[in-house]
Design a protein around this nucleic acid. Structure first.
Lengths: 202, 202, 202, 202
DNA sequence: CATGAATGAGATTTCATTCAT
DNA sequence: AATGAATGAAATCTCATTCAT
């Protein structure tokens, strides 16, 4: 321990504080949470937080940054170029849903605040848009090869993202069926999207 | 004006205040909005708000109630029993997406706050669960008649709801493509869900 | 009724309002009572009060004035000059204690507020001092004739006044023994003051 | 200073705040005094008060508690059992009047508020009643031994208490003669009560 | 005269942030 | 580095008072 560099120890404190913040934000929301609540949860004094973060707002931004870093751990679409779309979908979704399960409380802490404030919404939108661009390009490529039928690639990107986002929201709401059957979703979505509901008989 | 009944005038004031509240909550979020902000937006004095709402919190609950009343204006699943599922889907989605467009700012004002607070989350979950029950029953019935293929009806309900909810979240984020092409979504979703993506060739 | 002069009707309203004010002030105190409370108690609208009193403070002063007018209905000390002091004491006390019983709630409403505020205290002190002057003069006259033994007439005035005031305070506090036996006090006090407690035996 | 225990420093702050509160309450009354007034008087910031008292009301209750603790420093009636009643009276009154002189401003701050509010009145009455019980018992014992002549012991307790209370009220009103001659009162009262005014001559 | 909806000044209280220890 | 007492800006809410009807 004593051998740990000062910087590393500082990082550990930052993480300890951010984790505590995520827990209490998730429970009561950013605004209803006091800096003292966070300090208590982290087991440190109020003032100590300000040695690592310049303001309460900075804590929120720190959590948003964590979420961003997390989002970047994505399967690379480019690498997926060669894969069968259906297989890619299933494995990509499996990865994502696994990640979301681990970090649900981080989303719970952060997403409401992002949605609540016009400025944060804008910042978040930009990042999401960047993420779309890669997906849009890849799907456009596949569309040109006829892999999407006549479904519009841009809408498909948004609808797929929306479905994931909506499931995340329901998870935040602790919807009991989804809580129980979360792992079935990658397979279920893949079947829904690729096979569709049965056409009208006859 | 003079002829207006006292009760009616009171109702009008309530609505005027709730509308103002929705606008400013949507812009800055519930907590960053002061009661004074709301009064300014409504063009009245601070104290007047308290003649119609006993607290700021009560304003939020008033908006949630509006949302609830709005949500109840739903196409009745029972009546839809005889319809072709694909046709029902398209017309139901069209109705819903139209409704959401009208009340997007109400959702923007209220949803983040619901997601932020564990207690509100619980209350909201209960109402959503009630709504599921009707849909679950109807889809189970259709499943027994083979109309859903081998897709699980409970998951289907959640995934469809999640897709709508996720699109709403993207709308709150003012995603530009969706803002532009919102009206295409009922048709797009119906095609996606019923026809699916093309199966792998060969 | 219709024949009643406008002024007289106005006086009646004033009295109605003052009575209502006395009742609610006595219960919750001047500051905890709202103008609306008074209006409700009087069975009129808030604004109507301001047709008869220019402010809430003016209501309090109105009640203090009532108390003052009441205090002036005093047995005239000059007229009592010829009476036996013991007889005067008994009959004077009987009158006073009877008056106090009738107007206890007026005292309850007003006295705390007088004691609470340095300015009102001063005004009240001046009036009490004026009342003392007559009593002081009369007692000094009797002292010169040896009727008080060697008891200082100024202190005697204060102690007698204090005893009455203290009993009033206990009545405000609803002391149960005094509530029950209030009428015995004039006789009791006269016996105590004129006969005294028994001297040490032996 | 540096050596002072945290608890002791906290107690000192509490006392500092209560003292300041007593001073300003005595001057302007509880309700006309703002928390800011108290903070200014104590030489601290508004918010600091709330580190030691959870509300303004709690400050008042704190002062009432101080008064209660003060009232308990009473000469024990039981121990006085053997004393000559006249001697006991004089020394007991001397103690009490000395105490009251020291804490007049505390009474000034608190008594009006107790009298103003029905709920506080009730609480105060109960404590006063408890105090009476000891005195009642002791006087009843002496009455059985004929020490009170035919004076009713219960009324005597109330009248004696009322006299003290009334003198306190006059002191709150800053009656000038009493302010000047306060120390003569124990002796004066003892002479009045035990020797009485002279009987009618002849 | 009477009403009661509207006003807005002012009070209490909270809590992010600072800084002496 | 860590503490936590102190700060004071800012928010919610109350209520005496006004005035159009």
């Amino acid at each position: 321990m004593r051998a740990m560099g000062g910087e590393e120890r500082g990082d550990r404190r930052r993480t300890q504080i951010l984790d505590a913040a995520a827990r209490v934000f998730a429970e009561r929301g950013y605004h209803r949470t006091t800096v003292r609540d966070i300090a208590r949860e982290a087991g440190i004094a109020d003032g100590t937080i300000y040695l690592y973060f310049s303001s309460k707002q900075e804590l929120l931004l720190g959590l948003i940054a964590q979420l961003g870093r997390f989002a970047e751990r994505r399967a690379d679409f480019a690498e997926a170029g060669a894969m069968d779309l259906r297989d890619f979908s299933r494995s990509y979704l499996a990865l994502r849903f696994e990640q979301v399960r681990e970090t649900r409380h981080l989303f719970t802490a952060v997403l409401p605040e992002i949605l609540a404030d016009a400025e944060l919404r804008e910042g978040f939108s930009e990042r999401v848009t960047e993420a779309y661009e890669a997906a849009d390009a890849e799907l456009a490529r596949r569309a040109r090869r006829g892999e999407l039928g006549d479904l519009d690639p841009q809408l498909l990107t948004r609808v797929a993202a929306a479905t994931g986002l909506g499931l995340l929201v329901l998870a935040i709401l602790e919807e009991p069926v989804l809580a129980e059957r979360w792992d079935e979703l990658p397979e279920f979505l893949t079947r829904l999207w690729f096979d569709g509901l049965p056409r009208e008989r006859g």
